[in-house]
């Protein structure tokens, strides 16, 4: 069987090098140096570079802000993860919770999708989804042409190592890093935005008073 053959070849080749047993000592900066305000500002700059639009609001005004952004973008039929807090739904829009029965073609037909996020990384301008209750299954943030993503201030970290510290507790979950809308540079290295993923990405950065209770999902 090839499994044993391959592992046998690997072991035979490596046997001479086993004496030096030491796991590598890795040394590189893991934590950032920016304060909260700078972190927010740099994330916004990065997102702009990716052609994403960025909006702000305090937590108590979130539903109103979501409504403003979606209606201004002309996105009225919105799908969302079933467990998204109902307090985010502005009454004037058409909200559909995701359900296992929805086909990919049906998901694709919505005007847009609204989700939360697991984390955001300032340095690379990345939004990270571990597809928990507020983010939904992967197809949800892939098929609709428009994605509105809500990110809370305390979800924003500066560096990738800080981000992985947050992800590792749930490392086996499907995880998606989104760094701007889909793009290609395959023809003459000209960057073209919007190939197969959502072509439009909007982000709302939510600031939360320090004494505000932490938002949890059921």
């Amino acid at each position: 069987m090839s499994r044993e053959a391959i592992l046998g070849r690997v072991r035979a080749a490596l046997s001479a090098d086993r004496s030096a047993e030491s796991s590598p000592l890795l040394s590189y900066p893991r934590t950032g140096t920016l304060n909260t305000e700078e972190r927010l500002q740099m994330l916004e700059e990065r997102l702009h570079e990716y052609d994403a639009r960025v909006f702000h609001c305090p937590e108590q005004a979130l539903a109103q802000r979501i409504f403003e952004v979606l209606s201004a973008a002309g996105r009225l039929r919105i799908i969302h993860p079933a467990a998204l807090p109902t307090s985010w739904h502005a009454a004037q829009l058409d909200w559909t919770p995701d359900s296992p029965g929805l086909s990919y073609a049906e998901i694709e037909a919505f005007d847009g999708v609204l989700t939360g996020a697991t984390a955001a990384v300032t340095e690379s301008g990345s939004i990270v989804l571990q597809h928990g209750p507020a983010e939904g299954r992967r197809a949800l943030t892939l098929l609709p042409d428009y994605h509105l993503c809500v990110i809370f201030e305390n979800q924003i970290v500066e560096t990738l190592p800080e981000c992985f510290d947050r992800l590792k507790a749930n490392a086996a979950a499907p995880t998606t890093f989104i760094s701007g809308p889909s793009a290609t540079a395959d023809i003459e290295m000209t960057r073209i935005k919007g190939v197969h993923g959502p072509r439009f990405l909007d982000v709302i950065l939510v600031t939360r008073p320090s004494n505000f209770p932490k938002l949890t999902f059921q």
Binding site: S126, R138, P174, T175, T176, F177, I178, G197
Partner: peptide, 10 residues
């Protein structure tokens, strides 16, 4: 700084 999409799954 980062490519548009990374997927990790188990």
């Amino acid at each position: 700084r980062m490519n548009p999409y990374n997927s990790i799954w188990t």
